[in-house]
Write a protein that binds this DNA or RNA. Structure first.
Lengths: 243, 243
DNA sequence: CGAGTTATTGACGAGAGTCAAACAACGTGG
DNA sequence: CCACGTTGTTTGACTCTCGTCAATAACTCG
């Protein structure tokens, strides 16, 4: 697991809060220095052994696998707060790369596991995290096997929206990743993504604003078209906080 | 979480081995009676709260979700030894049904979690189990977004083959599930599954033998066509036992 | 043996992929 | 600040795989 050369190792932001017994997984990372990773650079590589876990503290990260000749699958986008490598046993099953410039923290796998073993209160959080990963992977599995291009894109937009509450007020959704990333995440081609966005724009549902933003003109329609309408309404209306 | 009416509750096979401290997850289930579930009957239902966990001790189980109107997705097939519901937090995210007649054991979720919390040695096994589920779900995600019908089917055949070592000697692979199950598992239609099998048969790679068996004429080709050739060879040749 | 279920085969069409060209955005250097 | 080249995106024409609908065949089980 190599850090790329230009990941300047900044020794800043060391919290001096005493970590007697860590009360959350996040707090495990607070002892480590923040590292900066430039957009497009790798954080860790598929096939390496799992020596470290990372936490994304700022920016967006993509996890991908390459299969066959040149077919890339993005299995997840990670946002601030998310962990990289929590569900790994021996080898890393993906390459993690920064989509935007990122700040990350790392701890060794050993330290992480030791803390989990030692501290009673971390375990439920860790297990919950793993369960969420399973659920997310299965959701994505459903998306990729039974949804058409429009449903996939709308699902993606909704997902993004939940990670960007702030901007959403103005109905402007920042989309940090490029079309190729979106395509590889949704199991489509770049052309199909582009065409689908164009179609949504022509119906005045979402309108692109430059390459990295979408103006949400009609959130209701997006929800409907995502093919998760039932789920989404249920979850949102009843304010059931999952996870 | 309801048991179907006809799941005769057989009070047999209670092991009398003393379970002082359970040394494996499986042993947790040994105190429970074995229940029999007829082929096609449900074991638990999507949306119910997680009151029990089950272990499949015999037979094959499918987990599925229904999305939209009538679109069914099978997220996994479970075999002898596998647990149902290990990765769930509150609600069940799938319906579990018996593909063949099954024997299962159950314990309450509470008992399961208590044991995990109490017994040091169960935790690594539980965590490993969750990690495997994540990995499996992600593999399937890749399959469904980037593989064509032939690759999907060959991947499926290989998966099945690893669960049926005995028969494989004679190169006859039992396929307990019907075409609809396979289709819903692979994200295809029943017709495409059928046509793909026919095509493989015409090339003398696998030949159907009745509806529930395939004769593997050329395992090497199956591996190649699965699109996991690199992985598979690596894993098999080095005799690395995963899981 | 025969009714009902499940699987196969065929003809056709739709949605997404491929290839190629035009276009827009971005960054750099003059 | 603008010209330019690079990169990323959109659009168009065409192809191909897989889905749909329908008919036929094979299997299963009472």
């Amino acid at each position: 697991m190599l850090m790329q050369k230009n990941a300047a190792f900044e020794n800043v932001e060391l919290t001096n809060e005493p970590v007697r017994t860590a009360r959350s997984l996040s707090s495990l990372f607070l002892l480590s220095a923040t590292e900066t990773v430039a957009a497009g650079k790798a954080i860790c590589w598929e096939g390496d052994s799992v020596k470290h876990l990372f936490q994304v503290t700022e920016g967006v990260v993509r996890l991908h696998r390459i299969i066959g000749e040149g077919r890339r699958v993005i299995t997840a986008f990670l946002f601030s707060g998310d962990l990289i490598g929590a569900s790994l046993q021996s080898d890393i099953l993906f390459t993690a790369e920064a989509v935007t410039e990122c700040k990350i923290r790392r701890i060794t796998r050993k330290a992480f596991l030791d803390e989990i073993a030692r501290c009673e209160c971390l375990r439920p959080e860790y297990i919950a995290l793993l369960c969420r990963e399973v659920a997310a992977a299965q959701d994505h599995m459903v998306l990729r096997s039974k949804k058409n291009a429009e449903e996939r894109l709308c699902s993606f937009i909704l997902n993004l929206a939940t990670h960007a509450e702030n901007d959403l007020n103005h109905r402007l959704l920042r989309v940090p990743m490029n079309r190729q990333d979106i395509a590889d995440y949704l199991g489509l081609t770049i052309e199909t993504v582009s065409r689908t966005i164009t179609k949504l724009a022509s119906r005045n549902i979402v309108v692109p604003e430059g390459r990295h933003a979408l103006r949400i003109m009609n959130l209701g329609r997006v929800v409907q078209l995502s093919g998760n309408a039932d789920d989404f309404l249920e979850k949102t209306c009843h304010s059931v906080r999952l996870h």
